[in-house]
Design a protein around this nucleic acid. Structure first.
Length: 238
DNA sequence: CGCCAGGCCGTGT
DNA sequence: ACACGGCATGGC
């Protein structure tokens, strides 16, 4: 027989399969419209989704879950509505800046925005205040339908604790890019037509397993990925 | 209560 | 290039 040792890329692809089997379809992003997905992507930055739901409910009641609604609402009012999900002085102007971009360069149309080439669009999103790599990629993938991987803190911990990358990915842009590349490679042999759906599902599954088993302080007991731990150990990291 | 969450940004070294 | 603190709130 040939080598039985899997590469990190193969291991990550296998993790996806295990998570998919364990958790089933995730139906992400949890929102009714692309614009609501974008708002959620901003609001959930370093913030529990439960709190984001409260802000989104406020925005819905105020009619601000649409481009027109958000454009019309005064900044101070917007700050008040999104207060439950924190960082209002940073997130409210950031949301306004997104609408400003949409109006100034795409006639207020998300469809026109989505029609831009992926690379140029990603750079344009990254140039916006309050939009870093994860928010940009989440918007690209979930709201705009572009086939890009989304990395996050949970995936970073998984890669670190399962020793998928050397050196382990840091919490910086370089670390983000290494995780995104690893994810791209993991699904590189899947049909191009399926890439967006796989990136979608994988990120959702990553968050699902992360919430349950991959906190800052490890809670790895009964994790579906335990079998992939190269160390064989459980719960002792750092 | 203290810790933490589906990041990002400015500053200092 | 990298580390570190600030940004805010509410759930658990």
């Amino acid at each position: 027989m040939t080598s039985t040792r899997l590469t990190p890329t193969q291991r990550l692809r296998r993790m996806h399969d295990q998570l998919s089997a364990a958790y089933g379809p995730q139906h992400w992003w949890p929102a009714e419209t692309p614009f609501e997905m974008i708002l959620g992507a901003y609001l959930t930055q370093n913030t529990a989704w439960k709190a984001v739901e409260r802000s989104l409910a406020n925005l819905r009641a105020a009619g601000a879950l649409t481009v027109d609604g958000l454009r019309s609402i005064p900044l101070d009012e917007l700050q008040r509505l999104i207060q439950p999900s924190g960082f209002p002085t940073r997130k409210a102007p950031a949301l306004k800046a997104f609408v400003d971009l949409l109006d100034a360069e795409f006639g207020g149309s998300l469809e026109l925005l989505a029609a831009s080439p992926t690379d140029a669009l990603r750079r344009r999103l990254l140039s916006l205040p309050g939009v870093g790599p994860e928010t940009a990629d989440a918007i690209l993938l979930y709201a705009l339908g572009h086939p890009v991987p989304v990395a996050d803190e949970y995936l970073r911990r998984i890669a670190e604790r399962h020793r998928l990358l050397t050196p382990p990915p840091g919490r910086n842009r370089k670390g983000y890019n290494s995780l995104a590349d690893l994810t791209r490679h993991a699904f590189a042999f899947d049909a191009a037509k399926n890439q967006a759906r796989l990136f979608n599902e994988f990120h959702a599954l990553t968050v699902a397993v992360g919430k349950a088993h991959c906190g800052r302080t490890a809670r790895c007991a009964n994790c579906p990925l335990a079998g992939d731990l190269s160390t064989g150990g459980l719960t002792r990291y750092d």
